[in-house]
Computed example of a mutant assay.
Amino acid sequence: MVIETVHLGKRYGTLQALSDLNLAIEPGKVFGFIGPNGAGKSTTMMILSTLLEQSEGEAYVCGYNVRKDPASVRQSIGYMPDFFGVYDNLTAVEYLEFYAGAFKIPARNRRSLVADLLELVNLSPKADAFVDSLSRGMQQRLGLARCLVHDPAVLILDEPASGLDPRARIELREIIKQLREMGKTILISSHILPELAELCDDIGVIEHGKLIACGSVHEVSNRETGGSVMQLRALRNLDKAALLLESSPLVNHLEEYMGGFRFYFQGTEQEKAELLQELMDEQVAVVYYGDAKKNLEDVFLAITEGVGME
């Protein structure tokens, strides 16, 4: 495992911010940490980044114990907090060259390295712009480039899209996809759930400092919400389709969706086929009938039902 925590806990006086956290993240995976603000996401990431010492348990990154060998952990990770300081009187190139020097990258290699990083995060045209002149989204991408200066195996990204407009979030998401294709192991947190839906291989849902669900998006979805999510699109007789679906004991949470309906189906494959036949018997002009991807809002709400929100 590239990242592993064993009964990890953190107390602040009488407040238990993190309790008995057990994570195991495989190489090359993108792991999404889901939870409301204050749930324990940032605490976990700061412990893994050696910026905060745990109260209980152990944590390992690339096989290194974060408490016993923090120097090796820091060489293995690129950590990006939700808000980070920048040196306003430096250009983007100077900013990255400064961090390349801090990581002891040979001076003769820094210029080409910085050029490659700026190209990766789509900031080459802003190479000579002062950092304080960059937009929030550009500063986030520059911060991501800074995390990559020493070519770490692991990226720990705490709310990387916080405060970004929709276009900037899309640009950042595309860069993270490229990093996944490069084989980086990525731990990414967010309370904006759709951000993580396309990116993550696995997710962990944390609430009040406790991990309450963990696994692949598909596994967690099916285990926690039950049944499957179906989607129906039709050209005509949608009113008949709605009546039929509403009357079926196997259909729950029916909602209009993309020229048709989306609903939970709790039945067998045979019963799915029978429902389709009933729709066609009612002259519903079906153009699509099949499984739909559960969104993470559905999963999160199902998992945390009864847990209580902060």
Rank of each mutant, 00 (worst) to 15 (best):
D132R: 06
V229F: 13
E246A: 12
L123Y: 05
L134P: 03
N109Y: 11
F130S: 03
V217M: 05
A234I: 03
L250Y: 14
K177N: 12
R146P: 00
A127Y: 05
E119I: 09
V205E: 00
S228M: 14
L155R: 09
K210C: 03
E224L: 09
A197N: 05
R223N: 14
N109K: 13
G209S: 03
A242K: 09
S190F: 03
C200P: 03
L245W: 07
N237I: 04
L244W: 07
E119V: 11
D239W: 11
A234G: 01
R223L: 13
H218R: 11
R167V: 12
L196W: 02
A197G: 06
D132I: 05
I212N: 00
L193T: 00
S190A: 04
L196K: 03
L123N: 05
R180H: 13
S216C: 10
A242G: 09
S162H: 00
D158E: 07
F130C: 02
H191V: 00
R180G: 14
A168D: 09
A234W: 02
L243V: 14
R173V: 12
V220I: 09
V114S: 01
S247R: 10
G143L: 02
L232C: 06
E255W: 12
S221P: 07
G227I: 11
A145M: 04
R169P: 07
A145Y: 04
P194S: 01
N122F: 11
L232S: 05
C200N: 03
L196V: 04
E174K: 15
I186A: 10
D151R: 06
S190E: 01
A168I: 12
S112W: 09
I170C: 14
